[in-house]
Simulated assay, not measured.
Amino acid sequence: MSKQAQSSKLVNKVYNAAYRVGFSPWDLGPPMPELVDLIEGDDALTPGRALDLGCGAGTKSVYLAQHGWRVTGVDIAPEAIKQARQKATDGAVQVEFVVADLLTDLDGVVTGPYDFLLDFGCAHSFRDEAKAVYARNIATLAAPGATLYLYAFTKGPLSVRPAEIDSDFGPHWELVSAVPGSKRGIPDAGPTWYRMTRRA
């Protein structure tokens, strides 16, 4: 088994167990102001097809569906997807939820193209060359000119640093902006919203 496959298997087990016992501090409740502004603000994106990467329990998938998007949520943890489906039912919205490993070939598992890809803390869980694999894989699902909105820490072991945006995402995605997140903790892990556009 490859190092990458071993890592994915471990992530699956850890996240599945966490959701099963109700420990998911990364599911932070209502969408952050930056996402709300992108979806509802004066210069909001036009609703189309959206892909919620590492969707967890589906809070943001449901939010997008409630604002006119046709949404697919993807997560590696079956327990998270189970909770997400219930959340969509409770919210009276239609969302397609898929159990998938975003580091593997997604052909036939998730079908693009998508106009908007949301990554709220997914990419910063990957290590080393896995970030480049992830950036390439999700690019295959994006329409030309699609928006990727990626929230990540920039300090510490869970991070996506600006240099990694250039090296790992740059071949497929053009950086539009990098804005510090409005909600910060102690210690400050440097949360940042990276907005990118799929290269043609």
Rank of each mutant, 00 (worst) to 15 (best):
residue 30 P to T: 08
residue 91 G to R: 08
residue 181 G to E: 08
residue 195 R to G: 10
residue 103 L to C: 07
residue 152 A to Q: 02
residue 174 E to G: 09
residue 128 D to R: 10
residue 122 C to K: 03
residue 164 E to S: 13
residue 190 G to W: 07
residue 117 L to S: 06
residue 182 S to T: 14
residue 166 D to A: 15
residue 120 F to N: 11
residue 158 L to G: 04
residue 155 K to T: 10
residue 107 D to L: 09
residue 60 K to I: 14
residue 66 Q to M: 14
residue 184 R to N: 12
residue 21 V to I: 15
residue 30 P to L: 07
residue 68 G to I: 11
residue 164 E to C: 05
residue 197 T to C: 02
residue 196 M to V: 08
residue 68 G to S: 04
residue 71 V to E: 10
residue 183 K to M: 11
residue 197 T to L: 10
residue 179 V to W: 01
residue 41 G to M: 08
residue 63 Y to K: 03
residue 109 V to T: 15
residue 63 Y to S: 04
residue 179 V to R: 05
residue 67 H to N: 14
residue 115 D to L: 03
residue 49 R to K: 15
residue 61 S to I: 11
residue 30 P to R: 08
residue 155 K to V: 07
residue 132 A to Y: 08
residue 157 P to E: 07
residue 74 V to S: 06
residue 17 A to N: 14
residue 148 L to V: 06
residue 2 S to R: 00
residue 190 G to V: 11
residue 23 F to W: 09
residue 120 F to T: 02
residue 95 V to E: 09
residue 80 A to K: 00
residue 42 D to R: 13
residue 181 G to C: 08
residue 37 D to F: 00
residue 152 A to L: 02
residue 183 K to G: 04
residue 94 Q to T: 15
residue 83 Q to F: 02
residue 68 G to P: 06
residue 65 A to C: 11
residue 134 Y to K: 03
residue 18 A to P: 06
residue 37 D to S: 06
residue 175 L to Y: 06
residue 140 T to Y: 10
residue 176 V to A: 11
residue 83 Q to W: 01
residue 42 D to I: 13
residue 113 P to L: 01
residue 15 Y to C: 07
residue 108 G to N: 14
residue 105 D to K: 11
residue 112 G to H: 11
residue 132 A to R: 12
residue 85 R to N: 14
residue 13 K to N: 13
residue 168 D to H: 14
residue 158 L to A: 13
residue 141 L to G: 09
residue 23 F to L: 11
residue 192 T to V: 09
residue 28 L to N: 02
residue 120 F to I: 03
residue 133 V to W: 00
residue 171 P to R: 02
residue 2 S to G: 01
residue 57 A to S: 13
residue 29 G to S: 02
residue 158 L to T: 12
residue 159 S to F: 05
residue 199 R to N: 08
residue 113 P to H: 03
residue 76 I to E: 06
residue 162 P to S: 13
residue 76 I to W: 01
residue 87 K to Q: 15
residue 10 L to F: 05
residue 127 R to E: 15
residue 39 I to D: 13
residue 152 A to C: 06
residue 182 S to R: 11
residue 190 G to N: 08
residue 28 L to K: 09
residue 90 D to V: 06
residue 144 P to N: 04
residue 41 G to R: 04
residue 168 D to F: 13
residue 108 G to C: 12
residue 56 G to H: 00
residue 40 E to H: 05
residue 31 P to L: 11
residue 47 P to G: 00
residue 188 D to Q: 05
residue 15 Y to E: 07
residue 147 T to E: 13
residue 23 F to N: 15
residue 170 G to A: 12
residue 50 A to H: 12
residue 7 S to K: 05
residue 75 D to N: 01
residue 31 P to T: 10
residue 71 V to D: 12
residue 25 P to F: 03
residue 84 A to N: 07
residue 151 Y to G: 02
residue 22 G to C: 13
residue 147 T to Y: 07
residue 1 M to C: 04
residue 152 A to F: 01
residue 121 G to I: 03
